[in-house]
Each structure stands twice: as C-alpha cells, then as structure tokens.
Design a protein around this nucleic acid. Sequence first.
DNA 1: TTGAAAGCGATACCAC
DNA 2: GTGGTATCGCTTTCAA
Lengths: 335, 335
Amino acid sequence: MVTINDVANAAGVAPSTVSYVISGKRSISPKTRRLVEESIRKLGYHPHAGARALASSKTNVLALVVPLRTDLNVAVVMQFVASAVTAARAHDHDLLLLTKDEGPAALQRVASSAIADALIVMDVEAADPRVPMLLALDRPVVLIGVPDHPAGLSSIDLDFTAAGSACVAHLARLGHRRIALIGPSPAVYRRGTSYATRFLDGFDDAARRAGVRAISRSCNHSYEAASHTLDDLFAEEPGITGLVVHNEAVLPALLSVLRNRGLTVPGDLSVVAVCPEAMADQHVVALTTVAIPAEEVGKQAVEMVVQRLNGHNTPEVRLLSPRLTERESTAAPHA
Amino acid sequence: MVTINDVANAAGVAPSTVSYVISGKRSISPKTRRLVEESIRKLGYHPHAGARALASSKTNVLALVVPLRTDLNVAVVMQFVASAVTAARAHDHDLLLLTKDEGPAALQRVASSAIADALIVMDVEAADPRVPMLLALDRPVVLIGVPDHPAGLSSIDLDFTAAGSACVAHLARLGHRRIALIGPSPAVYRRGTSYATRFLDGFDDAARRAGVRAISRSCNHSYEAASHTLDDLFAEEPGITGLVVHNEAVLPALLSVLRNRGLTVPGDLSVVAVCPEAMADQHVVALTTVAIPAEEVGKQAVEMVVQRLNGHNTPEVRLLSPRLTERESTAAPHA
DNA sequence: TTGAAAGCGATACCAC
DNA sequence: GTGGTATCGCTTTCAA
C-alpha cells in the first residue's frame, strides 16, 4: 500500500507537507505543490480512509436510512436515494445505506462507532421511536418527513398539507362538488407516517373551505383493492366527479378499473394524482399531478446535513411548496 | 468518547484483553469475560470503526454499485438492494452505495482508500469498462450480470437464456405458433447489457427448436411506445397469439393498450411476463410469469463476496434457473 | 489466561 | 513556507 510517507519521500518533503497539499489547509509554494502532486499521481496514492477518520474524526460518510417496504412507492424512494448519493458525492461524501428495519439501534451503532458523520432518515413517523435516539446522538441529522416533536432536529419534506389543499382547490375551481381521496395503504396510516395524515388534513380542510363534499379511503396496491375501494366510495357518495389519488402504486390498477367500468377520464371522472412527474405520462391519459419532488428533497436533505457538518447549527424545518401541473386527466364535470 | 482503554480500566484488565473478548480470537476466563462485557454495556462502548480499519485492514463495509437509470426497473433494483443490505448485516457488514454513473474511478477510489473491503457491481454490460479496473483492484468482487470476459471475477444472475426459452416453451406447449417478444428499451440493448441479449438468444433458440414463428421488438416505457410497438409487431406478423414481455416497466401501459383495442388476455392474446413475482397480481389479470429472483440474487451476491473475504478464493459464475409460474394470463389459443 | 507495547496511516500542533 | 512528531483507538505479536 502507498502511504503518505512514500509520497513524502518521493517528493523529498515531510509527510505533513503532503497532508497540507491535499487538504489545502495551509499555503504551499508552487514548486512543492507540483512536486507532491506529481508523486501522488506517479505512485497512485489514495489516503487511507480509516487512518483519516482516526486522526481527524471525520469519515466523510453520510448514513441514509431508507424504508424497504413495498407498500411505499419504490420509485419515489429510488429517486430520492439517487439524488442523495449524487449530492453527497458533490460534497465529497459517500453514502452508507441503512434500513428502517434495523431500528434505533442501528443509528446508535453507526454514530457511536464513527462509521458516519451525519444521518439522513427517511419515512419518519409521527411518533417515531428513532427521534429520541437521534437527539441523543450528537451528530447532524436531517429527517425526511415531519414527526410530531422534531425538537432540535432538522427536517424537510413536501408540504403535504398544502398539497392536499391544492388538489381540492383545483377540482373545486373546475366545478366539482363531490370529490374523493384514495389514500395510501392502511399500513401507512396505521404506523402514523405523517405525510398521509397531513395530506388528508389539507384535503379535508380545503374541501370545507370550498364547500365541497369530500370523502376518503385508504387503499392497497392490488387491482382488487382498487376495485373495492372504488365501490365503497361510490356507495357512500354516488355523485363523485373528482378523484384525488395519493397512492402512486395503485394508479395503474385504478385506471384499469375505471376503464373496465366504462368510466372515462376526464369525461366521467377527473383525476389528480400525487406522484413523481415522471409517472404522469405512463398512462393512457396524461395525468394532472401534484409532483412529489423526490429529487429536490434528496438534494436539499444532503445540503442541510452538510451545512450542519460545517458548523451552521440551526435546526430547520423546510416544507417545499407543492406544484400542481394540469394535464389531460382533469376537466370540468358534466352538467 | 468511550475507548477500549476506558473499558479496560473499568474492568481492571488490559486493553488487549478487551479486544480479545470482543473478537473472540483467544480464550477468556468466564470471570474476565463477564467483567469486560459488563463494562462495555455500562459505558456504552462502541469500537471506533476507523481505528479498527487502520489496525486490522478490514472495514466491514461492502460497496454496492447500482444503476440509477429510470429505463431500468426500479422495483427490481430496490428489491435487490434491500436483500443485499439485509444479507450484509447478517454477516456483520454495512453497505456503501455507489452509482454506476461514477464510473470506474469510483471503484478505484473506494478500493484504494480502503473504504470498503469488497465490491458488488450491478447492471454489468457485455464489454463493461469497469471489468478491467475491478480485476486490477485485488479485492473480492461479485458481478450481477455476466460480461463477455469475466476473467477472474465472480458473477451471479438469473439464467436469462433459459428464461427466454422457458417463456417460448410454455407458449408453444399451449399451442401457440406465432409469438412476439417485447423487450427492454433500446437503450438497454444499445449499451449491451447482457441480460437483454441473453434472453433474446434463449427466446429465438427455443422458437427455432419448437418450430414457432417468433419476432421481437425493444420498447420504451410510455403508453405511446407500447402502442407503437404493438402496431409494429402485428404489422409484421398478424397472427400473433402469444406475447412475451421482458420489460416490467411497460407492463401496465401495455395491458392498457390491449384493453383499449378490445383484445382480451388470455382470450385473444396470451401474455408471459418476466418480472418480480410481486408484480404478478397488480394487474387486471394475474400474470403468468418467469420470476426475476432479485432477492435471491442479492442475497447470494453478498454471500459469495463474504466467502471470498473469508479466503475462499474461487471465482464462480452462478446462473439461477428460471421458474415459470402459470397464472391467468396464458391459455391455449383460439382455434 | 493475561499483559505490554509496537504498529496501522493519517492529521494538526508546535517549532523554526 | 516547511518539518518534526505526538496523537487518534484499535489489533496483534511477543512474553510471561
């Protein structure tokens, strides 16, 4: 293995000088710099991460805790992860993957063993058992999703309350008076993932303000579930003309169900979907959407955590404003 | 920070003894063990990963290189990653996430800086530029997918050739004489991802053996692409009664297209899909599938790499046999 | 069965 | 602008 000493010898300087050339933490004469950089290249030197971590108490690794359930939208998780790695690399950090299943203990382990410098935690629940642990960790943390008591933790997420309202407002503006929400799977509500309830709050609230009849159901991903949920909704409220779907995974199945029943979109039913923009075009009719800005969230999460690593210590809750894009799946209801 | 010395002091033993209690690399009297373990617990001691890596030349980290494109099936990638993390943790390793976009240099960096002990590389192409780099790395490597010249590298994958054949064999057995393959997006073929061509080989080969007319097209993910591809296929071969879909992402769109044209499954057209089993039930009609065993592949990839870390140094190419599960989307063709 | 001490390869302080 | 060197926290050899 090539060490910093090898480089120093080859360049005829002290190891500390090599270190400083690399880190840029003190000024170096052009000549020395050239000499050192050449030796580094020639020898193919790469600083040993462990040694570095030991000496500097920095690993340049961020831990990312992801949910690996299938009742969550996989595409969204992937988009998020993708943008997070990319952003992390842009700040010279690597990403360590942890799963939600490992629970609070994994966070403890990674922080206490100095495996990572900071943590980003996805899929945070309202009363998440990991929150108290994270607070005790004394490392920068950014949550994706907002727990009931974020205390001193930073978090970032789409403003789901505003998103729920935006969907209703759009349909109401078009003239719909009876609308329904097809929400995430019961499991999501059950474990109190806050975005589900926040969305619902915004939805109900806007409906009340707009004087619109609004009902909602959670729904699993299968074709059958979609079918039953739809039955339920129409049984309770026969005159529904607008549908808000906050459950990306059931979208394909749901649209099939509608088609099977001879219901056209947006002719018989207007549909607003909450999903990544990329999914809007994957269906028969281009969907009016409120975008889930997974990429933006991933990028900003990394940037927030890096900020904190650089000493900017102000816990912060960032809620990104929803953006509704009108496409072909919404229109005014039939008279 | 709690160090091994703190623990040693608290337990009244030497630091080396604490180390041996933890590693189990030499026998310890029951009394000493109890003492040490108690102190560890009491102090909340976690060994410093960097120090460990420096002293032992082991990081207990596996690097996983994933593709982050959207023209690949995200769900499959996620399943794979999920099972890999889980398997890695079971062997006391963490997973570092790298992206294919970072290219060969990233592998170099991670290996040379001793950030990870071994690498698992997904989405390997026929003439993958990373292969020569990986060979030079002198660290255990397992490839997901089979390059043209694996040389001394281990690899694992579904036996896509056999999978292609299995699909044809199934349809032929049911009596279909004209079948078509809807393959991955052109981009996948273009960059020479070998599973696409291997599948096609198996498909063509089996068709020849069975005396069946077989044609194929690559296809993008949009509804439009599905529609055009179908037009193309029927234009070239009007009597098609069997469809093999080796492109999970286009499935929902494709099924919509069929329905829109009044084609029933399996009445007018039998469909065999190559996809994760979990996707079989997400459609109007439960799909006959050849499963993509992402979980199994992920698990075995980790196990292979761990084997090599433990000194079992035999490069190996593992091809998992395909499993076809008959569901509702295939039947004998109309007379 | 246990202890003492020599590294591992960087960083960063103290000198000059 | 540069060099010397203590230090980080652990593993592992050598000795007892």
